[in-house]
Structure formats: structure tokens, C-alpha cells
């Protein structure tokens, strides 16, 4: 049973990555959007190194959320276009594997975009993250996992809705506020010389939120899928 679901998850991941490799539609639009965001933020908010450190945490997390939203909004688009959701819904065990597969795909895409975006932001805002790089990366990784966990579920909820692009941030962002506040707090504390003692509780809170988001999403996904079917 577990082996079947694992194989289904890998099949979904491979299919989505192959499709993206072929079309590159998500990659091109999101990287272009990320660069645009970076340019706008840099000109709007960067005046000197001091203000850079002050505004960087907010900008970093807003950039992650915006680029992540682009990736997540297209999670089920290909299933919707040809009504493949119906074919998938008929496959035994596919509800869990579809959620887990899409969750991993979203994580991969978000990680790729962050890999392009974050070094650029660090460079243009001239912030030094080298001392506590591991903690920065941990916070970003934990935040990304929470975002992808909840985003995958909300994206499925809105798959049949004509206004899904508008509704996705309206539904998703309020649910993510606790995670984003914690993320901003961690980045801010780390940039002002804080260490694990300061950020540890925030990161633990983010992990707890992730577990709640993930389990809730996994439990609700089959109901969401049958409702949108």
C-alpha cells in the first residue's frame, strides 16, 4: 500500500517536472516576476545599508510569498484543462498521492525560484548573512514548506473557480499570516546579531505550524477533491 502511494507520488512529480521542462512556462514567468520584484523593491526601499537591514526581512518574505503564489496558482491547472482530475480521482489511493506529489512539486519549484531570487536580494540590499547562514536557510526552508503545504490545498479548493487567481491570495494569505510573522521575526533577529537563543522559539513555532498545516491539508484534501470533482 505504502509502496503504491510512493510510486504514485514519484509518477506525479516526474510528470509535472517533465511538463515544466518542456514548456518552461512557470520557470520563465516566475523568474521574470522575481527579477521585477527585486528591481522595484531595491529602488523603492534601499537607501543605505542601515535601512537595507531594516526593510530586508519584510521584502524577503513578501518576495517569497509573491513568487510562491505564482507557482502554486498553477498547481492543478493542467489537471483542470483536460479534466484530468476526474481520471485521477478514479484511481485508488490517488487522493493522498496527488496531494503529496503536488506538494513536493511546489516545494521544488519554490526552492528553485528562491535559489534565483534570494542571492539577488541579498546582493542588492548588501546584507550580511554569512555568520548565521544555516539559521537563515532553515527559516526559509521551514517557511517554504508551510507555504507549499497550505498553498497546495487552497489551490485544489479553487481549481474550478473562475476567479481562482484573485481568490488564491485572499484565501491563502490570512491563513499564512502567523507563519510569515514568525519568518520575518527570525530574519530580522538574525540580521541584528541574534542567534539560536533568539530565533529558536520562532523556528519551533513555524515547525509546529507546518505540522498542523500539513496534517490538516492531507486530511482535507480528499474532501476537497471530491467537492471539486
Amino acid at each position: 500500500m505504502k509502496a503504491v502511494i510512493f510510486r504514485q507520488i514519484l509518477t506525479i512529480i516526474a510528470k509535472d517536472l517533465r511538463r515544466e521542462w518542456r514548456t518552461r512556462e512557470l520557470l520563465i514567468t516566475t523568474v521574470a516576476f522575481a527579477v521585477l520584484l527585486m528591481v522595484v523593491f531595491t529602488f523603492a526601499f534601499y537607501h543605505d545599508d542601515e535601512t537595507g537591514i531594516l526593510v530586508f526581512p519584510g521584502i524577503l518574505w513578501v518576495a517569497i510569498v509573491f513568487t510562491g503564489t505564482l507557482a502554486i496558482s498553477r498547481t492543478f491547472q493542467h489537471e483542470r484543462e483536460q479534466d484530468c482530475l476526474r481520471a485521477l480521482a478514479l484511481i485508488p489511493g490517488s487522493q493522498h498521492s496527488l496531494y503529496l506529489g503536488k506538494f513536493v512539486v511546489n516545494l521544488i519549484f519554490m526552492a528553485l525560484f528562491e535559489l534565483a531570487l534570494i542571492p539577488l536580494l541579498i546582493f542588492t540590499f548588501s546584507v550580511d548573512v554569512s555568520d548565521v547562514l544555516a539559521l537563515h536557510l532553515l527559516a526559509i526552508a521551514v517557511g517554504t514548506i508551510g507555504f507549499a503545504a497550505l498553498g497546495t490545498l487552497v489551490s485544489a479548493m479553487l481549481v474550478r473557480n473562475e476567479l481562482r487567481e484573485v481568490l488564491l491570495p485572499i484565501v491563502l494569505y490570512p491563513l499564512l499570516i502567523p507563519l510569515l510573522i514568525a519568518g520575518v521575526q527570525v530574519t530580522s533577529a538574525l540580521l541584528t546579531g541574534g542567534g539560536w537563543a533568539e530565533v529558536g522559539p520562532w523556528i519551533q513555532a513555524m515547525m509546529a505550524m507546518n505540522i498542523a498545516y500539513f496534517l490538516l491539508s492531507l486530511a482535507l484534501f480528499r474532501w476537497v477533491l471530491s467537492a471539486v470533482e
Binding site: 510528470k15 517533465r18 511538463r19 518542456r22 493542467h78 483536460q82 479534466d83 484530468c84 476526474r86 481520471a87
Partner: peptide, 12 residues
């Protein structure tokens, strides 16, 4: 299940 929609992925 066979529907009037193809239920197939166009890019594959």
C-alpha cells in the same frame, strides 16, 4: 471511465 472530455495531458 470514458468522457467526451479527453481526460489526458495535452503537453505529454
Amino acid at each position: 471511465w470514458v468522457s467526451h472530455d479527453a481526460l489526458l495531458y495535452g503537453e505529454l
